[in-house]
Write a protein that binds this DNA or RNA. Structure first.
Length: 103
DNA sequence: GGTTTGACCCTAA
DNA sequence: ATTAGGGCCAAAC
């Protein structure tokens, strides 16, 4: 039985380039729908090479708290793969209707 | 093994 | 529509 962390890593790897998923969505894919916060904890500590930039919150906003990878970096990474990111007074928004991944 | 820690989310007002 | 407040739960201490 894989650990929750392993399933989260797997789910994040499955997000296609140019799409985004929410923390809750990733938690659900990792078979623990209410553990959205834990997804954030895992991504924060994860030394794994992952497309972590494709995970955002339910409002379509970049929500990151990692000094080494600030929101600006996440926005840049997403733009590099073709996702439109709107900036509004220091916050970054993505249109979920266009970019949300539907497995 | 109890407590703390969070890159969250839902509901009610 | 917008916003507090409380619940959640796996990992790390």
């Amino acid at each position: 039985m894989p650990t929750f962390e392993q399933r989260v890593i797997q789910a994040v790897r499955n997000i296609p380039q140019g799409r985004v998923a929410t923390y809750g969505q990733v938690a659900a894919l990792a078979s623990s729908p209410r553990a959205a916060r834990t997804v954030g904890v895992i991504l924060r500590r994860s030394a794994e090479v992952l497309p972590w930039q494709r995970v955002i919150n339910r409002e379509g906003r970049i929500s990151i708290s990692n000094i080494e990878f600030p929101a600006e970096i996440q926005a840049e990474l997403l733009r590099q793969e073709g996702v439109a990111v709107d900036e509004k007074d220091g916050q970054y928004f993505i249109d979920l209707r266009r970019y949300l991944w539907k497995p």
